[in-house]
Amino acid sequence: MLIGASERDFITKGVESGIRADGRGPLDFRQFFLETGMITQASGSCRATIDFGTDVLAGVKVQVGDIEGRVDSDEAQADGAMVEDAGAGDDAETGAQSRGNVGRVVCTVECSPAAKSVLDAREVDDMCNEYSQILTRTLNGPHGGLDLQKLCIIPGSTCWVVNVDVLILDYGGNVLDTIFMAVRGALHNTRLPKATVEQTDGHFEFDISDDETEILAGRESVPVAMTLSKIGTSRIVDSTPLEALCSAAQVTVFVNRAGNVCGLQKSGKGSLEPSILIDMIETGVKLGTELAEKLDAVLDREERDRLSHIEPTGFR
């Protein structure tokens, strides 16, 4: 996508004086919609839509898998040292020991061909890979919220693997925040089948029930993403595609409901002054905590609808 010099100037000067083309203030979000559970084949699903913009569908599929590092305990170190394992902060166990009894989350972000044509093909590939890595890094670990130790079925050998697949259906700016909303919704909506483990003369056997009944432990502490884009000398949230083109640098702050920072990621090809950066982090934390509360209210309502057997409306 390209933008003309005069339009760029118009948007930049507007943002600097606190005005945006669609009438929002610098720190106002567009209205968003969240709907969960409309893909019945998935263990959990959620569609997050921003008004007249980005549309993201996240599906969760759980499967039984081998615990990572069962063959090779060094794998977590060599493969993704940035992906902290769940026990890393645990004082009682060293990293290597606790690595044997945690499940994992595997995330992929894909861009549907319908949304692809807006952007350059290489850009899309880079973007999807970047977002997949961010998701995997943010969700695998104590900061991701999910209790990965509860995903362990047989210590040292078998665990649940939570596959989170995200599909970008439409591109209308602020994709990363929308992805995290959809993922948070889908994880909230996920039900695991109950696994019962029996120990018969020294070795374990497990049985998986047909009904999906168990919720994911820690689903309420999954962080939300809050991206602030620097345009000119000011910063805005929830940028539209045109605003995104005017922004040289973005900072995404991942915040959980407790108001703690669970991750930071700068993107874009510009630079930031440290004082602006710190201001963006603090603003992001404040807005992110508010967003998490808002999302929780929506998800609680969806949960009540589910319990009272109100069918999801499906794709609008």
Binding site: G263, L277, I281
Partner: peptide, 26 residues
């Protein structure tokens, strides 16, 4: 970029209070 006093990239993982995060950045 030390001379221009500009941060060009930042990645953070792990749950942490905002104040400690700012301390690490500095």
């Amino acid at each position: 970029m030390p001379v221009l006093n500009e941060v060009t990239h930042l990645i953070q993982t792990g749950e942490i209070a905002p104040a400690q995060c700012v301390q690490a950045v500095e």
